[in-house]
Every structure is written in C-alpha cells, then in structure tokens.
C-alpha cells in the first residue's frame, strides 16, 4: 500500500482526533487573531445606536442550548449595547427550552452589570406558544398575548409596559433564532403586517438564508454564527466566549480546508493511476 492509498484510507478516528486538537489547543494557547466587523453586524449596531433613549427592544429567544454557544454571546452583547444606550428590553421566546437562557442573560447583564430594575427597564414574558399566530396577535395587542410575565406578575403591574401596547411602540425586534418557529415567522407574519425594524441573529448554518431579507430591507441587521457574535463583542468592546472561540474556529476551518485539499489530491492521484 503506497502513501496515496494510505491517506485515502485514513482512519476517521484520526480525523476526529485532529479536529478535537484543532478546537481545544487554541483555547489554551490563544492566537489573538483580529476580528473584522462585517456590514450586516455593523448595520444592526448602527440601528441600535440610532434608537432614542427609552425605546423598547423586543428580543425573542428562539433557540435552545444546542444553539447557545453561537447565539448566547450575541444575546449578551446586544443586551449590553441596549442597556448602555438606556433602552428598555422586552424579552419573550418562541422556544420553551430557551427561557432559562433569556433569564440568565438578563440577570447577568441587566441586573449584574448595569443594575437595571426589573419591570421598569426590562421585562421577561418567557415562552409564547403558537408560533406565527402568536406573532400576528402580538403586533396587534402585546398586552393580550403577554398577560403575565414569567414570575406571574400581571402586565398591568409592570410600569415599563404602560406605554408598550402594540407593534408601533417597539423600536426594534430582534429574533435570536436557530430554527422554526423563529426569524422566518417574524419576517413573514410579524414584519409583513406591522413593519418596523426587525433584525436577526442566526447560527452559522442558518445565516445564509437571511441575506435575501437583508437586501430587501425586511431585516435591518444580521448576526451570523459565532463569528457574528464575536464581531458584536468587538463593537461593544466586551470580549467574551465568542471571541475566545474564534481562534478555535479559525484553526478548525483551516483543518477542514486542509482535509478537502488532501482528499482531492488522493482522488485525482487514484483517477490518474486508473487511467
């Protein structure tokens, strides 16, 4: 068996081991590579910068723990930006398993870092079942859909909600999404009826689908994958887990490209030999 044949029959456990090393080693020995901000992320940042003080940002947690490594850093960074700009945050979610992630993010940033007051500066209505139909109702009458927050407090007893009744009271809607129901439903059923600013944060695998909506202006910003989260961390000048993960992702991508090239060398060498 010659070298080409040996490479062609490479045990996949060796591939798995190299991937593990490519991901783990940069976490212990950071490369500190510079992170450039791309236009879709910059656009979202600029929209939030442009909102007047006291505007309401409605953030929908449409992901679960499997998408959290990519999306939670974006959620934290955007919350930091909102509270720094003295914006108010209304949180809810179309995915039940995402509720604790939203609670943790608001506790960490809203209470922990910015000392904001629950009910006055931010509220959390938790999981809202019904997907598209709920979104249609939400834009028409927020109080009807969000009658109680996650702690059982009536919406009428939350001071922040006094002036937040329908879609036109919201400055920006953010769908942090990794599937269905998620950004598609926000675009098709909420934005199509009520317009306004809508942006999304997506896992890397989902982001390419949303460039078409960015072009048409249906989305005012797009944070794609861990890279997008790292870009937002850079914009708010608070380096977190996404920035740390970028070195690992860089090395992993180089490794995949290396394997693709190697696989093609083997393929062409074998083809040439057979011919």
């Amino acid at each position: 068996m010659d070298f080409i044949e040996k490479i062609g029959r490479l045990d996949r456990r060796i591939i798995f081991l190299t991937v593990a090393l490519a991901v783990i080693l940069p976490l212990f020995f950071p490369l500190g590579l510079p992170i450039e901000v791309t236009p879709p992320v910059q656009q979202l940042y600029d929209v939030i910068e442009g909102l007047s003080e006291g505007s309401v940002v409605m953030m929908s947690i449409d992901y679960d723990p499997s998408g959290a490594p990519e999306l939670q850093p974006a959620t934290l960074s955007i919350l930091r930006h909102c509270f720094r700009r003295d914006l108010k945050v209304l949180m809810l979610g179309l995915w039940a398993p995402g509720v604790p992630l939203g609670v943790q993010a608001l506790d960490e940033v809203g209470v922990g870092e910015f000392n904001r007051e629950y009910g006055v500066d931010f509220v959390n209505f938790g999981y809202k079942p019904g997907g598209a139909v709920t979104l249609v109702n939400l834009g028409r009458d927020i109080h009807d859909v969000c009658r109680q927050d996650i702690y059982g407090t009536s919406v009428e007893e939350l001071p922040m909600m006094d002036d937040v009744k329908a879609a036109n009271d919201i400055g920006l809607v953010l769908s942090m999404s990794m599937g269905v129901p998620g950004s598609d439903q926000w675009i098709w059923y909420y934005h199509a009826r009520y317009q306004g600013n809508l942006a999304t944060a997506q896992t890397a695998i989902g982001a390419p689908r949303y460039y078409q909506y960015l072009q048409t202006g249906q989305l005012v910003g797009l944070v794609g994958g861990m890279k997008g989260s790292a870009e937002y961390e850079r914009l708010v000048d608070h380096m977190g887990l996404a920035t740390t993960g970028m070195d690992s992702q860089s090395v992993a991508h180089l490794l995949i490209i290396g394997f693709v090239i190697l696989g093609n060398i083997v393929y062409w060498a074998e083809k040439r030999r057979k011919a």
Binding site: I15, T18, A20, P65, S66, P69, F259, G263, N264
Partner: peptide
C-alpha cells in the same frame, strides 16, 4: 441539559470534517 445539547450539536464539526475529506471532491 445545556452541555448535553451543546455537545450533540458540536459533534457536527467532527462529521463535517470527515465527510469533507471523503466526499467533497472536484
């Protein structure tokens, strides 16, 4: 729940690399 789900999702990286090596041919 968090580490279990995140781990399951991250396994994609291993399979994508292996599949790229074996199937992503010009």
């Amino acid at each position: 729940q968090f580490p279990l789900e995140a781990t399951m999702y991250s396994l994609l990286a291993f399979f994508v690399t292996s599949a790229s090596f074996r199937a992503f041919r010009a």
